[in-house]
């Protein structure tokens, strides 16, 4: 029984991580209707920044996390202004090719700079090891992930629901044309949101080095996971992708733990079934 709870908590931690990694993509897909297969590349960048700062320069872990998020946000902002603006409104095939190309380029650059091997980090002592809580064993790092990512999710939720920027963003997602007609700067809103989403992906990538692993293949390896979170979660809330990510994390971890012979098959099947059952997203109201 204790092991079931441990698996559940590990799954929740993985799901939280996935949420932070992929929530930015839901905006790209939902707001601008852009198929962005390169979202994971921002996560990869954050991961590598964190690894370099931590292992080579000895920067404290929290600072490395911040730097990873900042670097990914900066790159997201630049790429959005330079390249992504040109593919809004183009057909899906163009967007697919563009973003796959971006993934290839970044993967090759990562390979040149850092090598093809999987990167490892040394977690600070206050995050490593396990602790017992009411007879249930839980890794400290997993607990840290749940708290930190939960905090991020809450901040995003209230940011989206309570702030003026959040209201504008929701309006733009709901109906971009009308929002523009009402005088909302949809382009700028998107620019900022894209950078924020990329930064969160960078944070997720840095947090995920320990759990998901990091190598130049990262963006392609987890592409499906990000897409599932967004496709299943829908675009117009924080709760949708959050629930989807939790579900995905728990199913994935439990599947790998108990029925390893089926492997990733479960995730793909779940993705297809959910896409067919709820094409508008898990929490979406029927139109």
């Amino acid at each position: 029984m204790a092991s079931a709870i441990t698996v559940l908590l590990d799954g929740v931690a993985a799901g939280m991580l996935l949420f932070v990694l992929s929530v930015g993509l839901s905006v790209t897909l939902g707001l601008m209707n852009v198929v962005n297969l390169a979202h994971g590349a921002f996560g990869m960048l954050g991961g590598y920044v964190c690894v370099v700062l931590l292992n080579r320069l000895g920067v404290p872990f929290p600072l490395a996390l911040l730097a990873a998020a900042a670097a990914a946000a900066a790159m997201g902002f630049v790429l959005e202004r330079l390249l992504y603006v040109h593919i809004y409104g183009r057909d899906h095939l163009t967007q697919v090719l563009f973003s796959i190309g971006l993934v290839f380029i970044m993967g090759a650059v990562a390979d040149w700079l850092m090598g093809a091997r999987t990167q490892l980090i040394q977690l600070p002592s206050w995050l490593s090891g396990r602790m017992e809580f009411a007879g249930i064993g839980l890794g400290r790092y997993r607990l840290f992930l749940i708290i930190l990512c939960g905090f991020v999710a809450l901040a995003l939720h209230f940011g989206l629901v309570r702030t003026r920027f959040g209201a504008r963003l929701r309006a733009a997602v709901d109906d971009g044309v009308v929002a523009r007609g009402m005088g909302l700067p949809v382009g700028r809103i998107f620019s900022i949101t894209f950078a924020l989403g990329s930064g969160l992906a960078g944070l997720g990538g840095a947090l995920g080095v320990e759990i998901l692993g990091l190598d130049p293949n990262f963006p392609l390896k987890y592409m499906v996971y990000f897409l599932v979170v967004v496709a299943v979660g829908g675009a117009n809330s924080v709760a949708g992708p959050f629930l989807a990510a939790l579900l995905l994390g728990v199913v994935d971890v439990a599947g790998k733990y108990w029925i390893p012979e089926v492997g990733a098959f479960i995730i793909y099947t779940a993705m297809v079934v959910l896409l067919l059952a709820r094409p508008q997203g898990l929490l979406a109201r029927a139109k």
Partner: peptide, 13 residues
């Protein structure tokens, strides 16, 4: 892989 990526982005744009 690098040049393939460049070609893809250029073609798309």
């Amino acid at each position: 892989q690098f040049w393939l990526g460049i070609a893809l982005v250029a073609l798309a744009l």
